[in-house]
């Protein structure tokens, strides 16, 4: 247990010392600040375009443009892109060491390969948690600070759900938890790919390609794709959005969470199976 803890600390040290680990934080900060700035300047005009058909019939009273709405818009934009930032780090965890040859050195230490992989996985998970917390802090915290509180209007393709301010905070916490699970699926997937190759570019590029492909399939309303969609992990990654529905489709969310956890377990199982039997030649 103590050796595992030491290994995790070492892996975290490695992550921190790599400049690419900060690309995710920098990108999130830049995107969030840019979106907040744009919405602060022009947000009302953007929103009027959405609600103009309703305002022909009704007067809409209340603070429509508020921190909750801004955070929700940011999450919609970012949670599709964020897996790529995670893959930059987790796709490099094994293959990066294979490329430099240090994996052989680590494997000679008196720790099992399973412990090495587990330590890397835990370090990757901690990195993911930190990214999510950072996103929560600037997307939710800063948006509330700049734009203030208010009811959240959630747009759906066939309607609109308006959630009362007091009913929103816990939904964001739950959404961040589901986002963490989604990012862990991507992290575990790229870690699995990382076990199979000796260069870090391969797992990162493959992970990106798979996410883009699956997302494109998920976007189209074509009958043949409808049969495939339930089997794509990207379909379940965006289930965080359903937490903002009213009433909440609990069964659908639970089903997706279970599928995400099964994906994590499956990718992790393959990673352990392969890595503990791998013939390390570099």
């Amino acid at each position: 247990m103590e050796s595992l803890l030491t290994l995790v600390q070492l892996e975290l040290y490695k992550i921190v010392t790599k400049p690419r680990s900060f690309i995710g934080f920098a990108a999130i900060t830049a995107i969030v600040l840019l979106v907040q700035f744009a919405l602060y300047i022009d947000g009302k005009t953007y929103w009027e375009f959405v609600t103009q058909s309703l305002e022909q019939t009704f007067t809409i009273n209340g603070t429509i443009f508020n921190g909750n709405l801004v955070c929700f818009i940011i999450l919609q934009m970012l949670l599709v892109q964020m897996p790529l930032m995670i893959a930059l780090v987790t796709g490099d965890l094994i293959s990066g060491e294979s490329a430099t040859g240090t994996i052989r050195l680590i494997a000679t230490k008196p720790v099992s390969r399973a412990q090495i992989l587990l330590a890397k996985y835990i370090a990757g998970a901690i990195y993911t948690v930190l990214i999510i917390l950072w996103l929560g802090l600037i997307a939710y915290g800063l948006s509330l600070l700049i734009f203030g509180h208010g009811d959240l209007i959630v747009l759906k393709s066939d309607g609109m759900v308006i959630l009362r301010d007091a009913d929103v905070a816990w939904r964001f916490v739950a959404a961040f938890f589901v986002a963490f699970l989604s990012l862990m699926v991507v992290g575990t997937f790229s870690l699995m790919l990382s076990c199979f190759t000796d260069n870090s570019i391969g797992p990162i590029i493959i992970t990106m390609a798979v996410i883009i492909l699956f997302t494109i399939i998920g976007t189209f309303d074509i009958p043949i794709f409808d049969r495939i969609k339930p089997f794509l992990f990207t379909t379940h990654m965006i289930v965080w959005r359903n937490i903002f529905d009213n009433p909440i489709p609990k069964e659908q969310i639970l089903q997706s969470v279970i599928i995400l956890i099964l994906h994590i377990a499956g990718f992790l199982g393959i990673s352990f199976y392969h890595f503990t039997r791998k013939d390390i030649q570099n």
Partner: peptide, 13 residues
């Protein structure tokens, strides 16, 4: 009330 899917970003619906 209806908005295009790309604006609502409601891909799963």
């Amino acid at each position: 009330f209806k908005v295009p899917k790309m604006i609502s970003a409601d891909i799963n619906n």
